[in-house]
Amino acid sequence: MTIRVLLVDDETSFVETLDRRLTLRKLQVLTAGSADEALDILEHNEVDVVVLDVRMPGTDGLTAIKTIKRRYPLIEVILLSGHATFEASVGGMALGAFDYLLKPVRLDELVYKIEDAFRRKSLQEEKIRTLKNAAVSASGEQES
């Protein structure tokens, strides 16, 4: 199954390059130049993993991850930062980020993280499905 990734970064040249390279690796890529644009895209598209720059003009990544995790708890978010502030990085993890990577990031590394994040999302979805099935079958037993 194709992994659907949303790249969010205000550095357009970085996003474009990453878009091209991730697409070559058979990922389905959407891009956004700001957090607000990203939230808009999430409203109208199915996305598995968001790769989110921490520092952007307007709404920053740490604020955006809170909104994303609140609205779409199953979507996994990988934070990407051009500047390692020690506090922000661990803080970002505590907000539910799947991982926090420092730029410049190796493409392989990023792809592994995206795959791992996708795997977690799939397992979570499956968990919800199995719980529902168990509930349905339990109620079915009661009815019969």
């Binding site: 020690f86 661990v90 420092l102």
Partner: peptide
Amino acid sequence: SNVTSVAI
């Protein structure tokens, strides 16, 4: 960046 990376 290394301290941050280990902490993460």
